[in-house]
Nucleic acid binder design. Structure first.
Lengths: 184, 184
DNA sequence: ACCTGAACACCGTTCAAGT
DNA sequence: ACCTGAACACCGTTCAAGT
């Protein structure tokens, strides 16, 4: 039985590499995890990864896609909650991957593919944010600016870990901007 | 009387290294500029830098300090302008160094000294922001949250280059929140 | 097609040795 | 003290060669 004839389908092996990279990138960070470590965790040699991916940034993008898919998936569970709760949920969810956030910003400068993933991501989140605001009955003029303030604030929360209290205060202050003053 | 006088004072050589690093880090980025390039630009060998600095992160911090000092210095020229103008000025000023911003976030994960510089920086900017808000007569409860929203929004503007129009809209929307509604 | 060992190019950093 | 040439350790990536 030749050793390189694996019982697994190629897609599974690929998924294993992504899973290994995801864990390592999230826990230790992209820069801090060599390809050799990803490979070892996935049970292959470093250069094997290059059969499945163009380069390290391609692995990063696969990780980002997986994480995003999971997040969107899990979002269903809080979709019915009021806005500030959902906001806080999103922040918590994403905060686990604050390392990925700064990695994306750092790598976007050097890798066009990461840059384009980043652009798409902001398009997506801005869109979600915008429909949230509209559903909440926010004033429609200057909505774009509010959306950006919201997105940037969330990004800031991810990257600068604050206390529980402060996070809630910021989320509340954010929502207070959109929801028209409660007068009944 | 010191007998081994160098043609250059050591402080000058150090400053030259920082100047070279600053230009390269701002233009090409931290990751993209090897120590050898910094050294060559400063007219020394790569390893000479290690006599003046502990490591590459120490050079980065020296660059950050220099940039910050210049920015605070130049701020005097717009100190008298109205808030939104000053805000926009700050964004423009800092946007030239968006590369440094993401570098700080990326390196803060791995280098404690960069992390501590980053913390100090946020303390400083939050303080400035806070006194701006107080001077503008913003409501004092929930001020901390507003300050953070402001800081994060500016950081977001730095890292996600928008059009001129959008930047102004965001800055205006930000200030609209603080300045009490114009009621006659 | 899938995978490997060996090698290349590059980079941050160190060190013994020079002035 | 200040600076260098040479080397070390590490890492992303490639390639000829195997199954």
């Amino acid at each position: 039985m030749p050793e390189n004839r694996r019982p697994q389908a190629p897609e599974e092996k690929r998924a294993e590499i992504v899973a290994a990279a995801r864990e390592l990138f999230v826990d230790a960070g992209y820069d801090a995890t060599p390809m050799s470590r990803v490979a070892a965790t996935a049970g292959v040699t470093a250069n094997t990864i290059y059969w499945y991916f163009d380069d390290k940034d391609a692995v990063l993008i696969a990780v980002l896609d997986a994480v995003l898919a999971d997040a969107l998936d899990q979002y269903q569970s809080v979709a019915a909650e009021p806005i500030p709760v959902r906001l806080l949920w999103v922040v918590r969810q994403l905060q686990q991957m604050s390392r990925l956030v700064s990695t994306v910003h750092a790598r976007a400068e050097r890798s066009p593919s990461v840059a384009s993933w980043h652009d798409d991501f902001h398009l997506l989140t801005s869109g979600l944010f915008r429909s949230e605001l509209e559903a909440a009955g926010a004033a429609t003029d200057g909505l774009d600016a509010e959306v950006m303030i919201g997105v940037f604030t969330i990004e800031g929360l991810l990257m600068h870990p604050l206390g529980e209290e402060e996070q809630r205060a910021v989320c509340d202050a954010l929502t207070a901007r959109w929801v028209p003053p409660q007068s009944s």
